[in-house]
Computed example of a mutant assay.
Amino acid sequence: MKKYRIGNPPPQIDPGLAEKLASVELATIGHFRHRGFVHRSIAPIQEVHGTLVGTAVTVAIPATDSTLLHHVLSVVRPGDFLIVDRLGDDRHACLGGGVAFAARMAGAIGVVIDGPCTDPDEILETGLPVWCRGVSSITTRLNDLGGAINVPVSCGNVPVLPGDFVMADATGVLVIPADEAAEVAEEALTRQARAGRNRGRIEAGEKLGDLSGASRLVAAALEEKANG
């Protein structure tokens, strides 16, 4: 069995489609799609304004070892979103200020870690957006234990393939298969536009329950009870 499995860099996502998705809040997509949202314990360590979108580049590293995390930063391209599968380890921080700086200089959109980070203040200084499971003072080292780059991984209970669309904002992270991204973007933009129209109607005096249909459902239930 190979100690290191290195897959080919995936095709980068369509810039036009990425721009559309960047105008959408993850919560808008959460109204009609539940698949692909990483566990909410993986959260941003910084303030996030807007939605970041990039191409999934995956790395899987075991326990105390960060050898491949250092190596993958030699192949990360501007526009890539680095997804780190810690293979079940939640004790050792694989990313700190130095690695974050290198990732930022490589052009990474951001990093999502299914585990903790360290040096949060230094990471914030680099400007690299990071989503992770909190912080830890115990760090990984170059132990040469093995791992994989650009293979299917798991992050926050979500399968991630190299080349998937990664969306991230203040509420969390969403992974969308590349062949589903256009459909998701179209539906999300439609719903977001509808929400904007509803705000205008509410400002004009209409009630949310009437617009959403909730008041009609309540009235029907009360009428049924009265007639029963």
Rank of each mutant, 00 (worst) to 15 (best):
L145T: 03
V173Q: 00
E183Y: 05
G134T: 04
P162S: 07
E180D: 14
M105P: 02
G98C: 04
I109F: 04
E187L: 14
L161R: 14
T139D: 06
G196F: 02
G107M: 12
R199I: 10
N157D: 14
L142W: 05
P177R: 15
G115D: 03
A100D: 06
S136C: 11
C117H: 12
C117Y: 08
G107E: 11
P120R: 11
P116R: 01
T190F: 10
D164L: 09
I123R: 06
A193G: 08
G200H: 04
A103G: 13
T140E: 08
R141K: 14
V160Y: 03
G172H: 09
L174I: 00
S137R: 14
P177F: 04
P162F: 10
M167I: 00
L161Q: 14
I138L: 13
G134S: 06
M167K: 06
N143T: 11
V160L: 09
I149L: 13
V173M: 05
N150F: 10
R133Y: 07
Q192T: 13
E186H: 08
V184P: 01
R133T: 06
G127W: 13
S154L: 12
A170N: 04
W131F: 15
D114Q: 10
T171C: 04
G107F: 09
L161I: 01
N143L: 15
D164N: 15
D179T: 11
N198G: 03
G127K: 09
A178G: 06
E186F: 05
G127R: 09
V166W: 06
P129C: 10
E180Y: 05
P116D: 03
R104V: 01
E180W: 05
G127F: 10
A102D: 11
G156F: 08
E183A: 15
A188M: 03
V99W: 05
I202A: 08
R197P: 01
E183D: 15
C155E: 02
A193T: 13
G163R: 11
G196Q: 09
R197L: 12
P177A: 03
N157E: 12
T118D: 08
A188G: 07
D119P: 06
I149E: 00
W131L: 01
T126S: 12
C132V: 02
R104T: 02
G134W: 01
V112E: 00
A170L: 09
I202K: 10
L128R: 05
I202D: 03
A102C: 04
V135D: 04
A185G: 00
P162D: 06
T190L: 11
A188Q: 00
T190I: 08
V112A: 02
N198W: 15
A168V: 00
P159A: 13
L124I: 13
T139N: 05
V160N: 02
I113C: 00
W131Y: 14
V158W: 03
E180S: 12
P159C: 03
G134R: 01
G134K: 03
D121P: 02
P129K: 11
E180R: 15
L145D: 13
T171G: 07
G172W: 08
F165R: 03
L145W: 05
V160R: 10
R197E: 15
A182Y: 02
V130N: 04
N143I: 03
A170S: 15
R133V: 10
P129R: 13
